[in-house]
Design a protein around this nucleic acid. Structure first.
Length: 480
RNA sequence: GGCCCCAUCGUCUAGUGGUUUAGGACACCGCCCUCUCACGGCGGCGGCAGGGGUUCGAAUCCCCUUGGGGCUACCA
């Protein structure tokens, strides 16, 4: 069987980390099986759907490296790929359901239904639709129509029917029809509801495997009933566990950053995010830090966990650091530029920027100090701008009793040099304590303070080499 | 309220009846490296939710309880 999976976000907001988690599993599965990934927009919620959100979602998916073969922006033979443009298909499907006697018009207003629902709940009764419009005579229907009421269409589930299906991860399911009330399939406006549209789309698009979060598990029998009414075979279902926040509630805005865009903005590498997401609910046979290709090769849908996982920012940060350290320095320069510019550390005129190779050396050092690019600016400041010396501890180091001697000796040692390698700089530095008859800390700490205005950072020898003898002397001489 | 799903260190998890003094990773703590903070290396702390069964033997199988989550919408 040809593997066709789909990712079907609703464009009502930014790409959510929980959604992208299941999107990733779909993608890994399809890529591994040589299948097709379809991207479609579920925009039947016309109130909240926006074109801008759709574009943002596509952009974030691409950034993450989750490409798709068919659907939004790329087209394909099964289009259109936006539910709002598939009205014709839903109407045809509805006609089939009408012809088969599976649906009936319901004239209840939203207010009436809401009141009934509240009343049921208050009495401790299950809030299920009473089914009263099913028994309407044609005269009664005509009367409602005469009042100008437009009906919604409800799918009837016989009380004695049992709906069964198999989940790839969880086995057999069997739901008695009496647990499921008659549900709306098409609104009075003619717009289909999710449960109906999703089935029509998955069917028409010949989706073979529906891999989604388990919040959809309880809705699956409704969808199965529609498949059956339409005389269609069932796809394979796989309900993976959903992502939770630290408080074990469904991951939401309350938990801080929950959109891909936010992690992107904070300067996480896409491969780090992908790797981390893959580790949530699935464990590789070997290793943890895996490239895209390794993830695809090792992924095993049947081994995906059914218990929910908490999204742990700390581990993401660690992974991000791992990827940063392993990243190519030239690439890091390109990625860092927006953050450096934003912080005012690069002139607007590109011609005035330090050479790319020099910036690459800088990134080669600083990548060991950060976990995301967003943390870069403070560390980069001494290299791209004049350090500030306001910090009390720094000021103390600069005015320490031996500081002037250290600075004088250091400056003299660099005199006449146009440049110096990290190794030579380290060598030169290590001779200073002996020459001055001082402890190493008494020499290096004030020097670091004068050169960077900070008490921490890369190795001093590296700093001296990168800054160059002239700048180093100038910074130190201010305090002599 | 009804139905469904889930349950191993704080977190992600390995584990599918004996090979387990329950393994790894993050976080945390300590030590080493060192001019500092990191990075890196080494070590430590820490868990089978509870109760019944089944079995010669249970983290692993069954039941109950508890806890968490989801669905029950003219949201998706």
């Amino acid at each position: 069987m040809k593997v066709r999976v789909r990712f079907a976000p609703s464009p009502t907001g930014l790409l959510h980390i929980g959604n992208v988690h299941t999107a990733l599993f779909n993608w890994l599965f399809a890529r591994q099986r040589g299948g097709v990934v379809v991207l479609r927009a579920e925009d039947t919620d016309t109130e909240r759907s926006e074109a801008a959100f759709e574009e943002g979602i596509c952009e974030d998916l691409r950034w993450l490296g989750l490409d798709w073969d068919e659907g939004l922006e790329v087209g394909g033979e099964y289009g259109p790929y936006r539910q709002s443009q598939r009205q014709q298909l839903y109407e045809e499907a509805l006609e089939k359901l009408k012809a088969g006697g599976y649906v009936y018009p319901c004239y209840c207003s939203v207010e009436e239904l809401e009141a009934q629902r509240k009343a049921d709940l208050a009495q401790g009764k299950p809030p299920r639709y009473s089914g009263r419009c099913r028994k309407l005579s044609s005269q009664q229907r005509a009367a409602f129509e005469a009042q100008g009421r437009k009906p919604s269409w409800r799918f009837h589930i016989p009380q004695d029917q049992t709906i069964t299906f198999t989940d790839l991860l969880r086995g057999e399911f069997s739901f008695p029809g009496k647990e499921i009330g008659d549900f709306v399939v098409v609104r009075p406006s003619g717009v289909p509801t999710y449960n109906f549209a999703v089935v029509v789309d998955d069917l028409k698009m010949e989706i073979s495997h529906i891999i989604r979060a388990d919040e959809h598990l309880s809705n699956t029998p409704r969808q199965v009933a529609i498949y059956q009414a339409l005389g269609a075979p069932l796809p394979q279902f796989a309900h993976v566990a959903m992502l939770l926040g630290p408080d074990r509630q469904k991951l939401s805005k309350r938990h801080g950053a929950v959109s891909v865009a936010q992690y992107r903005a904070q300067g996480y590498l896409p491969e780090a995010l992908m790797n981390y997401l893959a580790l949530l609910g699935w464990t590789p046979k070997e290793g943890e830090i895996l490239s895209r290709a390794e993830l695809i090769a090792q992924f095993d849908l049947s081994k995906v966990a059914t218990s929910p996982a908490i999204f742990d920012q700390e581990k993401l940060r660690w992974l991000s650091g791992q990827y940063l350290r392993g990243a190519d320095d030239t690439r890091l320069v390109a990625l860092a530029i927006p953050y450096l510019s934003e912080a005012g550390l690069l002139p607007e005129d590109k011609a005035a920027w330090p050479p790319k190779e020099w910036l690459a050396r800088m990134m080669g050092l600083l990548k060991h100090n950060i976990l995301s690019l967003g943390e870069l600016p403070p560390w980069a400041k001494p290299f791209l701008a004049e350090p500030s010396y306001e910090d009390q501890k720094i000021a103390k180091l600069l005015s320490g009793e031996n500081a002037v001697r250290v600075f004088t000796e250091f400056s003299a040692a660099l005199e006449g040099k146009a440049q110096i390698s990290p190794e030579d700089a380290a060598e030169l530095l290590h001779q200073l304590p002996g020459e001055l008859a001082l402890g190493a800390g008494k020499v290096f700490r004030p020097l670091r303070a004068a050169l960077t205005g900070q008490g921490r950072g890369p190795e001093l020898g590296e700093i001296v080499s990168l800054l160059g003898p002239a700048l180093c002397r100038a910074r130190v001489q201010k305090f002599i």
